[in-house]
Every structure is written in C-alpha cells, then in structure tokens.
Design a protein around this nucleic acid. Structure first.
Lengths: 197, 197
DNA sequence: TTGACAAGTGACCTTTCGTTCACTATAATA
DNA sequence: TATTATAGTGAACGAAAGGTCACTTGTCAA
C-alpha cells in the first residue's frame, strides 16, 4: 500500500486547505488524517509549499482538461427548455461535486497570496463560464432561439448571477436548495427577456 | 499619543488581515507596523482573537450605519442617464475606497472560518446590493423608466454582474480600468434591454 | 510635589510550527 | 537467499508563534 500515497496526500491537502487555508493547515494534522505520522509526508514532498504547488498544478491541469479546450464545450441546446435543463445540470454538478467545491474554496482563500491561484480564480469565477455561454448564446442566436445581441455581453449577464449563487452555496450550504431554485427562476426570467417569442 | 491606539491597532489589523488573513497575521509584525513592540498590543486587547472580534464588530457596525437603514437608500434616479451615473459613482466608491476594499478582502478570506464573517460576506457580496437596487427599480418602474417586472429579480440580475467585476478588481487590481468600462457597458446594455423606450 | 494610573518596554515562557534524521519494516529484485 | 530501494516511525531541532510579567515612562488630578 504505497504508490498512491502521493495522490492521497494531495486529496487530503485539498480538503484541509479548502477548510482552513494554506496558513491554517499544519502538516501534523494533515498526516494524521491519512493515518501517517508527520515525517512520513516528507518522503513524498519536500515541504508544505511543494504540496501547495503540486496541488495547484493538479487544479490547473484538471481545469484545462475539463474546460480548457473547445471540444469540451457543451452542444448548443435547441429549445429554451433544453437550455434551462443544461443550466440546471451544470449548476447541480458545480454545486455538489466535492472536488470542484473544494477547488473553488481554496482559490477563494488563496487568491490574494498566490499568483497562479489568482489567475485560476478568475477563470473559475468569471471568464470560464462567460466564455462557455458566449459560445452557446452565439449558437442559439444562429438557431433563432435568442434575440440577436452581443453574445459575450449576454453570457456575462447570464453567468455572473449564477456564479454569485454558487458562491452563496459554498459560503452557506444550508441555502443550497433555495439557491438552486433561484438559479432556475433567473434562468427562466432570462429566457423570457432575451428569447425569441 | 494614546487613546486612539486601540483604533490604530484595528486599522492596522484590517490592513494585515486583508492581505494575509487571520492565521497568516502575527502580532509582532502587526505591532511593528504601529511602531510598537508586541507586548504593547496586549495593553489594549487580551488576545489576537479579541482583535479579530473587535474588528468584526466595527465592520458590522459600519455596514449597519452605512447601508443598514432605509434612510440611507439613494434617491430614485429620474432618467436612464442619471441611473447610469449613480451606478458608476457607487462602483467607483466601492472599488477605490480602501476601507471597503479591505473589508471585502477580509470577508473573502475568513468567510469559511467565522460565522459572523460568513453572514456579513453574504450581505456585502449579494443581498446588500440586491436590496438596494430592488428599491431603486421599484421606484423607476413607478416613474415609468423601467418595464414593469419583478424588481427583486431585476435587481439580482443587475447587481450580481457588477459585483463580479468588483471582485475582479479586488483580485487583479491592474484590471480595474477595464472592469469599470465593463460595468458601464453592462449598465447601458441593461437599460437598453429593460428600459421603457 | 506626589501619587496613581494608563501606555509602552524587553526579557522570558510555553506551545506549535515546519523540517531533519537515524532507524525499521516491507516487498520486490538480482 | 541476500540485497536494495521504498515507505513509514519516532525522537529531536530551531524558529516563530501567542501570551505573560516585572518594570519604566509620561501625564494629569489631588
């Protein structure tokens, strides 16, 4: 039982960093949560900072694989109802997927301290969703589902309110159900305002 | 040189907490930034945690004074152009006022650790602006400046994109100019979509 | 002038931090 | 079977953390 220890350390580090931040996390506790004694960690990483950097590497790579390339863009929905479905599926995933939630929390906590975290935070919190919806809205306009307008502006106007509610879920998980309802209500309102009648 | 030391400590604490977070801040450095030696601080506060709580008290009180009561609501603008002016003045203040910026950063960093910070963060980042614009939009609908619609939904759709750009400024200050331009562009787009022609 | 008190100092305490190191157990390789 | 690399242990380290305390200084009221 060995070779995956490095992975297990990173997983535990994501968990702790997302709850207590980098400074608030200590190696003893981190090792203990893996059933190790603290010095054991140093067989796999040279320092706490190296753990942090490896974790960021993983988060950046994961983001690239998952959202980075055009072929991962979702298909353009061909009805308003399917558009709302897609939004709700995406929201559900991003709110409930533990790894994604923890990644967002870590980026929230470390965005002012680490430059790579800063950049990745902007992608997660702003540009990522906006770019995705820019593509979708351009497609929907071509299909006549949406009024002709600046797709990037619409994408910004659509994704940032949803993003705000996702942050709310991260901060106050007990409001998750309400937030999901509000995402759907907002989505329908948006279609009512910009959809082609 | 004496009685205001408590205030100076809180000011310095806001500065440091906003940059390094609570855990990342140490009392020696904090005192040094005031020209004190660390034990001097303990003449004014019993512990680091008491400084934190006092700072939160101040932030909560300040928020209450400034945004908490109905009489502080801005007047309902009586033209689209004045509405945009008001938005831009507010954005400019909230992006450039150092105390407000530091408060947002502290709340960002400590929202998962401290319950009062959690609640205040939600006010700062979501409900505060939304409530304000709900009032303004209801007024503008009455004046015939805005299409009749759910004012709370419009306020949510209007304030959260602006909030996202404010967060961007906190995170990447070099993008401030661009963000302010985008706030204005969004504001005009919003009026074009929902304003009465 | 003196006494009292608040403000600030510097040495010191304990705890906890990240890190090191000599050692052991294990399991695959030669 | 002997060897060797790998993973994990436990004691110890120096540095830095938060906090205490006896002491000095400066200010103002009595």
């Amino acid at each position: 039982m060995a070779k995956d220890t490095k992975e297990r350390i990173l997983t535990a580090a994501l968990e702790m960093f997302s709850q207590k931040g980098y400074e608030g996390t200590n190696i003893r506790e981190l090792s203990a949560s893996l059933g190790l004694v603290k010095s054991g960690i140093y067989k796999h990483f040279e320092s706490k900072e190296e753990i942090w950097n490896a974790l960021l590497d993983r988060m950046i790579a994961y983001y690239g694989e998952r959202f980075g390339s055009p072929e991962h863009l979702p298909p353009v929905p061909d009805s308003p109802e399917k558009f709302i479905d897609m939004t709700m599926r995406m929201a559900d995933l991003t709110i409930h997927d533990e790894q994604i939630v923890k990644t967002r929390k870590v980026l929230t906590l470390e965005q002012f301290r680490d430059d790579r975290a800063r950049k990745l935070a902007t992608k997660h919190f702003l540009t990522g969703l906006t770019e995705m919806f820019t593509h979708i809205f351009a497609g929907m306009m071509n299909k006549g589902l949406l009024r002709r307008d600046d797709p990037a502006m619409l994408a910004f106007a659509y994704s940032t309110p949803i993003s705000a509610l996702i942050h709310l879920c991260d901060r106050e998980p007990e409001k998750t159900e309400d937030a999901i309802r509000r995402i759907e209500a907002f989505s329908r309102h948006f279609i009512a305002a910009y959809g082609v009648k």
